[in-house]
Design a protein around this nucleic acid. Sequence first.
DNA 1: GAATTTCTTGAAACTAGTTACATTATAAAG
DNA 2: CTTTATAATGTAACTAGTTTCAAGAAATTC
Lengths: 336, 336
Amino acid sequence: MLGNAKKKKPNLRDVARTAEVSVATVSRVLNSPDMVNATTRARVENVIEELGFVRSAAARAINSGRTRLLGALIPTLDSDIFSSTVNSMEQTLVDHGFSLIVATTDDDPEKEARKAQELLDVGVEGIFVTGLDHGDALYALLHRTRVPTVAISFYDAAYHLPTIGYDNRAAADLACAHLIELGHKRVAVVHGPLAGNDRTLARVDGARAGLADKTCGLYETELSVEGGVNAVRRIMRHTPRCDAIFCLSDVIAFGVLNELLRLGVSVPNDMSVISIHDLPAAEYTVPPLTTVHLPARQMGCKAAESLAAWVEHDVRPPPLHLASRLIVRGSTRRRS
Amino acid sequence: MLGNAKKKKPNLRDVARTAEVSVATVSRVLNSPDMVNATTRARVENVIEELGFVRSAAARAINSGRTRLLGALIPTLDSDIFSSTVNSMEQTLVDHGFSLIVATTDDDPEKEARKAQELLDVGVEGIFVTGLDHGDALYALLHRTRVPTVAISFYDAAYHLPTIGYDNRAAADLACAHLIELGHKRVAVVHGPLAGNDRTLARVDGARAGLADKTCGLYETELSVEGGVNAVRRIMRHTPRCDAIFCLSDVIAFGVLNELLRLGVSVPNDMSVISIHDLPAAEYTVPPLTTVHLPARQMGCKAAESLAAWVEHDVRPPPLHLASRLIVRGSTRRRS
DNA sequence: GAATTTCTTGAAACTAGTTACATTATAAAG
DNA sequence: CTTTATAATGTAACTAGTTTCAAGAAATTC
């Protein structure tokens, strides 16, 4: 079983020789069968089958100058936050004849630049990056190679790359406005890691501005359910008298909700909880989570279409703002 | 801004001409700089920089016969179920110098075969498939092209492809044994769609066998939190007197837990809930979820290593069984 | 000072396809 | 029975790199 792969794989010339036709004819059988006489075609097709010939993608690419490959630089797939976006990206891209290479960066600029180089090495024709804040190495690379690149998860018309996403600051504002309108006075803000994460940073800015003096502390934690659980423990130690917790991401909110429940803190009676993202599960928590909906799928879809069009027709897409909107459910309540 | 991409991108020959050296020298500067005189190298490097030369991945691939691309056929990324596996796959693959193309199949054999063809068209050297049950078209394709392929999410030593995964049936058995040991008599089983999903099917088989006459109904629902919520509603209508709910997937269990809480059914006092997967969030539900741990990350990692080695050194990996184990937390309790 | 070794470099032949152009044969039109 | 059109196929030149082999120059050894 080990040594049966000895003979190298056949190429176009091998097929041509065996079928006693020219390479051009074989190529025609592959690409425009109608041009080839039915008898000849059948003979060639038999030989192809017989030899197990598979045409080299690289050789095709070299002629067309096209690889039909796009790359996505994503912080991580190991979280609901990006996986749905990547999913819809991939689905949309297929319709445009592209394949998607995913590369995770862990929000590390160095890793990101390295992976970007790798993407270019394998020949991607376009790149998706996440957020606006990237290392100089990446910018230099993108500039040098002029690869079409769109930035997702963040809308900023002034950015030097087309951005397709939502306004993270505005999303935080929406949530804050809701809390204030409900009469909240002491809001704890829980957010994921700030290091290298401009999306979170923008949300924190939005929260700071929107809450003004109604804040009672910023809590940084991991971007996970566990992170939310831990944050609640800290909040209860430091500012037990706060009346609302604003989570800058749904996954954190899930943990917060669970831990509050465990501690016997009633949501929304004793504590309001609000968040940003609106993951599918947000509708089914207890109580259902009030959150700012971010159109993650739509973003994946639009970004895919934009980059595909850019690569295909050389038209740089305009930045696209996807509106976020507040979804009021049961985790927030008016204070008396 | 539109018309500046008129001139085509420079190639090796252009660089050679401008730098007044041969193509071989330019190639050497790129691949083995030490062989080139420092002065010449500097000159060539300047020209490369100046012209913005980027070497064609396709042309390189054609010579090496390598694309360093692998493809993964995954039901969906839009769920925690596969995203962590894909994430660890990608991370591991990078260390071996491969890039990963993801292709989602929605558990549709036709879509899967189509995407497999697309993967081969772009030149992947190896493929990951999910589960064991695939369409004839896919098998034919894999057989014809002899691409190294490993099947994940399912261990079966007898399968014609190397499998790397856990024993889904045994995982269900583990959970059942626990329920029975706790004295449960009436267990409702909630599972995701069976159509084209051999993993779920195996778990259902395991549950049927393990539970024997202790079952009180099989409930099929969507593989989501919402699916779990809906299932509870149906269970309460049809078999309100059951004393345990066995969810064949954590995401369903999350919904089940939430809906039971909303209905005031105490877990584990009135109802035990057990599940399979052990997603990170399972530790932080209320109560913490008793579940069978599936080593999803480890699977991604091992699968990546196996396929990388197969492609690289032509050694077909042996099937690999990853043990699942019961994690007893707070959602199950002994019946009196 | 001659012989040998090492360092650089280039010409040309590869890799595996696609495609423009030429050629031949057959069929239809005049 | 030519002339013209059409279909089918082949030749060879592309695509963009890598690599082998040989040659020339410089450095080292005898």
